[in-house]
Each structure stands twice: as structure tokens, then as C-alpha cells.
Amino acid sequence: MGIVKTKNLTFEYIRRDDEGNVEGVTKAVDDVSIDLKEGDFVAILGHNGSGKSTLAKHINALLLPTEGSVIVDGIDTLDTDQMLKVRQTAGMVFQNPDNQIIGTVVEEEVAFGPENMGVPTKEIWKRVEDSLKAVGMFAYRTASPNKLSGGQKQRIAIAGIVAMKPKCIILDEPTAMLDPKGRAEVLRVLHELNEKEGVTIILITHYMEEVIEADSVFVCDKGRIVMQGSPKEIFSHVEELKELRLDVPQVTELAYELKKAGIPIKDGILTNEELVRELKNVYYR
């Protein structure tokens, strides 16, 4: 069984008008069943309001399912006695770096999670050192988080989760508020954690470029999972993605347009190199 498994997960919230009368019920997540393999780099795509953030909060037990169940590493999130264990197994990084940093010094910020878990002082120091090194921020350990750039802050937030030694890290649009350089930094750190430490990464995003190197991709729309597969498979369906108001990477779009114009190249091209190779094949044929 995978590290994160949801079974017919449904989450409803009640909409109310200004006087508090019930206007209706919205299903933010609707009958979602997914099974994520340990050690994978998983991407969840979807436009705003597609329910992807709500889904993420279920994995961390911040929200509990209205119907169905979420199993994280063998623990049902509805079991409130084990809630802390779930949160420790599946750490979560949020969108706004400023709003998730608690400490006034970088190393104290990273220590916040282990402190809550009751890790002994000596072990905390070791974990803080290791996780700051893992995200390449060890040189800044005594700095104030306010003085760092967005990408650096987000790396600190990731270090704060890594220090809790989770098996799985969920990131809810971690790069949405960053500049391109910060985005690249954060993604590099995530891939390193995934490859070197074997941490399962669940990346929620609407930047297609961040999805290309994932092991598997899920596409959300209106609270449902509408597509799933490898990035190649997903990006072969350019038409459907466009209908879901999602962009495809530039190269994929170019390849798609070329194909539509009658040039015989294959579907699901993700990188510049691939396209160049394909075009050469066509040329020399």
C-alpha cells in the first residue's frame, strides 16, 4: 500500500449568506480515490478553486473528510489520537513564506517542529544543522528571517518540515509568490530531497514547468481527479488541458501546433531537446 491513500474522499462546506442562512453546499473535494507510492515525486495540477488545496489539507489532517477516508502511512486521519503522528509523517509547506515562519532567528524557526514533538535538545541541534544543510541555508542559521529573500524563506520553511523527519512533504503552491530564481531554488531543493533522502514529495502547483520532472501527475477540476498519469501522458492531451483552463509548457504547445499543421511528430514532448530531436528525424527522413 502507498504512503498516502484516499478512498472516496469527499469534503463539503456549507455556504452561508450575510445573515448566516444556509445558501447551499459546495463539494470542494468530490469522491477522490488516489494511491501515492512512497518515494515518488507527485504533482497535483489544477486551476484556482479546483479543490487541490483542500485535498492537500486532508493529507495533513488539517481538514477531516466529510465522507470517505484518508490513510497516511497506515493511519486513518479520522483517528484524532494519532493526529500528531499523521502531521509528523506528512509535513506541509504553505504558499506565503511570511505567514508560516514563527521564529525570529532561522535556526529557532527550523527547531519549532522538533520542539513541539518533544525531541531532546541535543538531537534538535543535530536535526536543525542537517536540515539547514539539506536546503543549503546553513550559512544563514543566525540570520533573521525578515532579512531573507522569498526563495530563501521558503527553503527555511522546507527545512523546518525536514527537521521533523517526515516520510512525505506536501507543498501547497510553494512557489506562487516567488520570483523565477526563487522558484528554481525551491524546486532544486525538492528534487534533491526526493532523490537523496527518498522523501515523498506532493507538489501542488499551477506552473506546468514544475510538473515535467514529476513521477506522476494528477489533474484536479471541480473537486474531482480528471486526469492522472506520467507527465508525458498528461501533456499528450493538450486539448483537454486547455478545456480545464490549464496551460501546457511552451515546447509542448509548439509541438502540438506543429503537429496540427501537419508535421508528423509524436505527442507529449516536454523538453527543448526532445523537440529538436523529433524535428531532426522529420527533416532527415
Binding site: F112, E115, G118, G160
Partner: peptide, 17 residues
């Protein structure tokens, strides 16, 4: 929410760096 996600649950059983 971020504090809760990082297992914060008051001073009970909390250690210090």
C-alpha cells in the same frame, strides 16, 4: 494553520532548542 501543521499543541511535552 502552519503552526498546527507542525504539531504545535501548547506547552505540553514541548522541548527547547
Amino acid at each position: 494553520m502552519a503552526m498546527e501543521a507542525r504539531c504545535y499543541h501548547g506547552s505540553e511535552g514541548r522541548t527547547k532548542m
